[in-house]
Amino acid sequence: MNVFRLAGDMSHLLAIIILLLKIWKTRSCAGISGRSQLLFALTYTARYLDLVTNWVSLYNTVMKVFFIATSYATIYLMYLKFKATYDSNHDTFRVEFLLLPVTILALVLNHEFSFMEILWTFSIYLEAVAILPQLFMVSKTGEAESITSHYLFALGSYRLLYIFNWIWRYYTEEYYDLIAIIAGVVQTVLYCDFFYLYFTKVLKGKKLQLPA
């Protein structure tokens, strides 16, 4: 554990808390992509099945349980409790275009051809692109509420901080995991456009609005 990873994890935690609070306080999930949230739930389920096979630390276990539980809580809020506020007309990204390539890639490019390892690899590749339905939704409606922007910023920062963590680990532990690194870089790059808008608009008090 180093400061970059801890900051990354905290950023991830913050993103989820922001999202849940937004939905809970406003009693609405408008502007949030249910498809991205389904992909995140699938990501954490596939990756954290090792909860029962691989003990790392109490911190690790608590965080994994939190990520799995909150991803399903989000889905419950979106698809059941506040279903009437879910903006499904704008949430139309075809997730099979992500799931199919990610599954094939996980079967071909992995560290070891075993069930748990392929699930882990699948989750790493899927997480890298899971935000695309959300970004697609923002581009389709041309805007995002400030609170949604803060959520996206915290979520994007998390993998960026992990990249610093991987650089740190490479120099201090000689540890590196190419699959995680490449997928993490792809994941972060997908947020670049959004980061630019966040700094130039949202932080100056303006709403995130895309040029028509």
């Binding site: 990873r5 691989n54 994994k64 990520f67 390892e117 882990w120 995991d177």
Partner: peptide, 10 residues
């Protein structure tokens, strides 16, 4: 060197 399939990160 790479630690094989030791996923200690989240």
């Amino acid at each position: 060197s790479e630690v094989e399939t030791n996923h200690d990160e989240l």
